[in-house]
Design a protein around this nucleic acid. Structure first.
Lengths: 203, 203, 203, 203
DNA sequence: TATGAATGAGTCTTCATTCAT
DNA sequence: AATGAATGAAGACTCATTCAT
């Protein structure tokens, strides 16, 4: 039996493939992998069910490719560029920007990321992607700091903790889980906390 | 759909219900909700499939009740008692204990919690439980601190950040996601960080 | 995931399993394996589609079990008993009986065996069964001959050729493939031929 | 369904049609009709899937035409020419040659014929072709015998039985189904048997 | 109360055939 | 004439839930 996955040649076909990834990934993000069926994906993409299986090995394949394509908007979207130059005494401003970016990027992509976060905990491939992306971000930020004159005292570990803190506060703000919390204050506390983490590396 | 879910009166029946919850929740934790079917649950619990629907409305019901029964072992299991007395200058020791408790409790319950964490992100009821439990823990710790002489300067927010930090470091240690990280050092950094959070409340 | 194939305990269930085998095997014999779907099998057996997969691993399993149960009516059904006593000079009568049995048994089982013969040529398991059955028959007939005083001069090979001749003539008669042939004459020729095969073993 | 199946005029087109038949028939012989899809056939033939339906009504059509073109290599390929002259006392040599031809032709065509034999039992058109071809061979051999001085005492029936015997022994040798059989001896027995069939026609 | 047999809607995937270019 | 993209019906199999005993 032939391995029938076709890489589309024609422009229209390429667009169609993209549309399927987008539709599929959107639906999976919104409703979850198990609650999204191929018929829905096809319908949302405006194609027949059959064509889906000419471009993708299976339903799972759509998820994987969607992740590769849109994952960086979902996981740790805090860094616009890793060529930022800043004065060490403005580190807090840089941190504020990171948090702003993170929250904005989440707001822009209009799908519910929760379902994908769900898969981070249940699906090997999604988890792998998540950790790959986390590592990328850790490395990027570490380099950013070094390029701006930070000393490398266990920067790897510190950046990791810092990312955790930013991730937490951003999700807090985005999903508004606690109505009785002062997010503005929390953000300040988190920034202060991160500054404390790097107190010996700034000098 | 039958409406008469029986609340078991007899001792044997009560035990049977418990067995089903335990078996079901274990399997769901290990393999995920969608990869666990009622036949398996019944088999694992040593009962027939039919009986399951006399004690539970549906499969989902088993999860919910399991969560209520065993959720505190899974989510934020860092506090043995909320009557701990300690000297403020030993706060770091208290924190170390919390981390130790957290990690130990995870190790003790031999099911994989990841699948439940997955549902926190995809299932409303599980999420609700998670946040309820988080709130409980936040409140408990806040009270613990106050009882031990901490000033209440935005303690709620601070404890929340603190819990996030502990949660992160514990999962890091438990799931060993980064081979090249110095967990001992990270733990110390986290504790120092938490101390920093409360620096004005200890005096 | 559990291996859900159930061996039925209750009498009614056992009968149901039998009914499914019978219905499935009949349909496969009549219409072919690929032209028989599980819904039809279930309908013919008077059960739901779901139950089929509680008793059988898959569609193929039905075929295999059907073969085991009914295969001896289909392949080489020429011997009623292997305890027949006959006088060597009546060997031709014995042969005539074999042919008569073969043809009758085919006529009795009212399904079309051609589809199963088809699978002998395309499916490993069915082929295996066919050759197992052929071997059984070869051995039985060989023993029958020896028990009735035949000498063993390459009896194995001779019986094999003999079975081929009988098989051919019987299928000829059953399926009436050649309208212009004198089957009565052919049968006599075949019998004479078989007698010739054993000419040195009768004495 | 389109009705204008094109009969190709141009040389290139004719070759293309041939290629499709060859590829399709080969694949069907090797893997079976149901396990061969049109995409594979097109790929193997080096053409697009669309073009297939300009030359053939449907997939089945490819099989039919392939059969017409290559069937004589598969079914009863024992006669090189029907103009052979031989001395009646060398009839056994002629038979040996037939068997040799049969086996050689099978060995030459490198596809698995079993799948086509399978269809003889399940597909009307293939069966028809098979019996047509059998009839051809019966007639040819009958004429051959008459041309070489055999008397016509029910030659039709006798030749038919003879063909069955040759067919059986050849398949035995080709597919080696019985490891414990002496094929050389069996071949001799079969030839002796055929000689016996015609004992009254040689004189 | 308890059993396990039975139901049938739902899902992924395949593939012969047709269509747009 | 040719390409390869597109269609959509059909089929095997699963499983939460209900039924008969």
């Amino acid at each position: 039996m032939v391995d029938n996955i076709r890489e589309p040649r024609q422009q229209r076909a390429i667009e169609k493939k993209e549309k399927i990834i987008k539709a599929g990934f959107n639906l999976i993000c919104k409703n979850g992998y198990y609650n999204t069926n191929t018929a829905e994906i096809a319908k949302e993409a405006g194609v027949s069910t059959g064509i889906v299986y000419q471009y993708f090995k299976d339903k799972y394949d759509i998820l994987t490719l969607g992740l590769e394509k849109y994952g960086n908007h979902i996981f740790f979207p805090m860094l616009k560029s890793n060529n930022i130059k800043f004065d060490k005494k403005d580190f807090d401003t840089v941190l504020k920007d990171m948090i702003k970016n993170y929250i904005n990027n989440h707001k822009i992509s209009n799908v519910a990321h929760e379902e994908i976060m769900s898969m981070v905990h249940s699906d090997k491939r999604v988890a792998e992607y998540y950790y790959k992306r986390e590592l990328e971000m850790t490395t990027s930020i570490k380099e950013l700091l070094i390029n701006n004159g930070f000393k490398d005292n266990n920067l790897y570990e510190k950046v990791h903790i810092m990312i955790g803190l930013i991730d937490n506060i951003c999700h807090e703000v985005i999903y508004h889980k606690h109505n009785d919390m002062d997010y503005k204050l929390m953000t300040d506390l988190v920034i202060d906390n991160i500054m404390n983490l790097f107190k010996n590396d700034l000098a």
